[in-house]
Design a protein around this nucleic acid. Structure first.
Lengths: 221, 221
DNA sequence: ACCTGAACACCGTTCAAGT
DNA sequence: ACCTGAACACCGTTCAAGT
């Protein structure tokens, strides 16, 4: 399928096209079968090819995931950010989350400190810019970006792992967290009882982000 | 080795002892060969046994990792926390990080929202208590704990992945993040140049934690 | 240049059988 | 009760060979 448009050129090869075919096949697996089912072997099968054929287009699995992120970020509509620096800092940090919240597989690629796709670099630039305009030095702006990134990465990791856990809840947890805890030693946790699980499942990303940004700005002045 | 002290009891089995032997063998692998080399098969080999013998003492690999965390947390000295609630909130959150910073393998077990080992539950209890004494409702205290946990989990994930990357830097990164970026589009990032990597490697956990806690407390009043 | 087949060096886990 | 051996159903990646 990938050499459909083979031409008569001197060294015929449509690598760009093949790469795109690989990426959309990978995206199809991601959408239909979930991140945990995307493997080089599964992907090769999806394309009626062999695993090693893929290595002609991507260096390794990590690069494949990075390219998928790149594509996803490029597709994402680039919203207009508020002019006011503090609001812009918050808005840019929110976009960072918005882009990644649809990529449960990035947990696997969360390797880098600075991540990531050039298609998403404009967000980092926006955060730095907004932080500097809020009165920070460039050094502190980088620091602020990193704190925001840690919060975002942590929220996404926990979020995706919870979703994955709920998806196949075949087996009960190793230990029921709350039940069976000694109320004498843990009066607050045990007093919450089932409320704990309920509170723990709420989407508080935005509110937490506001606290983080607020704390960073307070520190800078 | 694990049935060294077999007794004459009615149904002789020293499961507690065997479990401990398994855990210390696992810890030995972790220390000497790193988290990425701990597998059920490697662990069985370390004990001159078969992989399946282990499944008599732990349900699966996840439980093994949880038990290792449990042991590590239990060993950790429990520091005295400040009486002043706001300082206690920060101190408890710092201990959460201190305990986990020596466990690069928790990245694999970062599954739960609320994590984790009962041996470390006193920290969660302390955070909730300090948050409430700082004027939060119990609900907001849980929310505050979660924000702190996200920041901590993110910081640790990025930290460990960077360490792992530096450990075997056999291959260069897929793309040099900064070099090759268009200065017209990303003036701030490119202007930092090599400073970016330098800033990105700094340990800013504590400072960031202070910002996060500060932001949470500001939100609560 | 592009692709294949076989192999290397692994995984976690299940199952049936042994003692 | 505790352990083994073989097997299932996978991984990512290398290598030598094909066209």
């Amino acid at each position: 399928m990938q050499h459909r448009t083979r031409r008569a050129g001197r060294t015929g090869r449509p690598p760009r096209l093949a790469r795109e075919a690989i990426l959309s096949a990978a995206q199809r697996i991601l959408d239909e079968e979930g991140a945990e089912n995307l493997s080089m072997r599964r992907l090769a099968k999806e394309m009626s090819s062999t695993p090693m054929a893929l290595y002609h287009y991507v260096r390794d699995k990590d690069e494949l995931l990075l390219l998928l992120l790149e594509e996803h970020a490029a597709k994402f509509p680039r919203p207009e950010l508020p002019a006011e620096p503090r609001a812009r800092l918050l808005a840019a940090a929110q976009v960072l989350h918005d882009i990644l919240v649809d990529c449960p597989w990035i947990v696997e690629v969360l390797a880098s400190d600075d991540l990531f796709a050039v298609s998403a670099m404009w967000i980092v630039e926006s955060i730095l810019d907004a932080a500097i305009e809020s009165g920070m030095t460039p050094e502190d702006a980088v620091y602020a970006y990193r704190v925001i990134w840690y919060y975002t990465a942590g929220e996404l990791t926990v979020r995706f792992n919870r979703e994955r856990r709920l998806a196949h809840l075949d087996r009960p947890p190793h230990r029921d967290q709350i039940t069976g805890l000694d109320p004498g030693e843990f009066p607050l946790i045990t007093s919450l009882g089932p409320r704990w699980n309920e509170l723990t499942v709420r989407d508080t990303h935005r509110r937490g982000l506001e606290a983080v940004v607020e704390g960073l700005l307070a520190q800078a002045t």
